[in-house]
């Protein structure tokens, strides 16, 4: 089971070509981070994976079904997508109602709803806010509410768009924990991020995009120590990576422990 993007291009109705010949297979159980400059096509690309954008050329196959044949809402049962801005989604008067909303929309049994909400809330660490109006909470926590709502709908793949924006230390730690817990639950996590520390620490596969194309696909070292890719995708090395480079430490160092060891 996998999300397969085959020779897919995407042209917006206004004629703007946003993606050119994208090929990528994301297998179940992987953790993938998509990085690259704004306008590189990252969001358009993931919107293709959940059927919001149907490729104008080529195909996107989610677990054997072609996205062209299904509505987005149907594909959403397999591929969940948390938008960058949680406020485009939240509208219920309590956090609990927000997380439960889609489950009730699908008319799931009460017991099932309870269980799913419990797990989603636990993973996103928002148990303390269940009876509060989500809009009374600060932005970073609203973001977790939006994530919880998608987790509760139990998709096999979850796409997160810029989850670390505005997060503090605790928030970033919660995200890391959530991602590894989701992996244990068998959920594939795909994220778009500008936060390279976050990408390096949590994702074993990094996809770099630039100018409507995928320019590199590999592990963190392959991406960040390839100067050509770094400059084309306009990404920044992590601070430790940068330090290692300036100190001319050999061995493509990205992590603190490695660097300490090598000095």
């Amino acid at each position: 089971m996998a999300i397969e993007v085959k020779n897919a291009s995407f042209v917006y109705p206004n004629g703007f070509k946003a993606l050119e010949n994208i090929n990528i297979v994301i297998n179940e159980g992987e953790r993938v981070a998509i990085v690259g400059q704004n306008g590189a096509g990252k969001t358009t690309c993931v919107k293709m994976m959940n059927g919001l954008n149907k490729p104008t050329e080529g195909d996107v196959i989610v677990d054997g079904m072609n996205t062209k044949d299904k509505t987005t809402a149907f594909i959403a049962k397999s591929v969940g997508y948390v938008f960058q801005n949680p406020d485009e989604q939240i509208f219920n008067s309590t956090v609990r109602a927000e997380v439960e909303y889609v489950l009730r929309y699908f008319k799931l049994p009460e017991k099932e709803i309870k269980e799913r909400v419990k797990r989603a809330v636990q993973l996103t660490d928002i148990a303390g806010y269940l009876d509060i109006n989500p809009l009374d909470l600060p932005y970073p926590i609203r973001k977790f509410v939006a994530i919880a709502a998608v987790i509760a709908s139990k998709p096999k793949y979850i796409i997160l768009d810029e989850p670390t924006a505005g997060q503090d230390k605790h928030g970033t730690e919660t995200l890391s924990m959530m991602i590894s817990e989701l992996e244990k639950d068998g959920v594939t996590v795909i994220t778009i991020t500008h936060d390279m520390d976050f990408a390096v620490a949590n994702f074993d596969r990094i996809v770099a995009m630039s100018q409507k194309k995928i320019i590199a696909d590999g592990n963190a070292k392959e991406i960040f120590w390839n100067e050509d890719i770094v400059s084309r995708a306009r990404i920044k090395k992590t601070q430790i990576g940068e330090l290692a480079k300036r100190l001319n430490v050999p061995g493509e160092v990205l992590f603190c422990e490695e660097l300490v060891e090598k000095l």
């Binding site: 605790h170 601070q239 430790i240 603190c256 660097l259 000095l263």
Partner: peptide, 15 residues
């Protein structure tokens, strides 16, 4: 106190 410190400072401590 719930805040980060620069990666270089973490590195300094690790050293």
């Amino acid at each position: 106190l719930g805040t980060m410190i620069p990666a270089t400072a973490v590195f300094g401590h690790a050293m």
